[in-house]
C-alpha cells in the first residue's frame, strides 16, 4: 500500500471521496472523525501492516499526516 492508497483508505473510513485527503487536514476539523474512526484506522493499520500502535502514540496525533507517520516505514 502506498501513501495515496493509505490516504484513500482513511478517506473511506471518513466517508470522503477518493483523493479528497491531502494530509495536512486537522482531524478535529473533519466531520466524521471520532473515536470510532480512530479505532478503524488502528485496525486497518494492524491488518495491512501488522503494526501495533501504542496507546501513548495515539494521544499525539492531530493531523492526517500524523496518521500516515504511524505507518510510514511500511508504505511502498
Amino acid at each position: 500500500m502506498n501513501r495515496q492508497e493509505f490516504l484513500d483508505a482513511i478517506a473511506e473510513i471518513l466517508e470522503l471521496e477518493e483523493g479528497e485527503l491531502k494530509g495536512d487536514e486537522k482531524l478535529a476539523d473533519l466531520e466524521e472523525w471520532d473515536s470510532l474512526a480512530f479505532l478503524s484506522v488502528i485496525a486497518m493499520a494492524d491488518e495491512e501492516f501488522d503494526v501495533v500502535i501504542q496507546g501513548e502514540q495515539l494521544e499525539k496525533i492531530t493531523t492526517v499526516n500524523d496518521l500516515v507517520a504511524l505507518v510510514q516505514e511500511h508504505l511502498s
Binding site: 473515536s35 480512530f38 479505532l39 488502528i42 500502535i53 496507546g55 501513548e56 495515539l58 494521544e59
Partner: peptide
Amino acid sequence: EKTRNSMTPAQF
C-alpha cells in the same frame, strides 16, 4: 493488553 494498545490511555 491488546485492547489497551488499541486506544489512548484516557480511553482505556
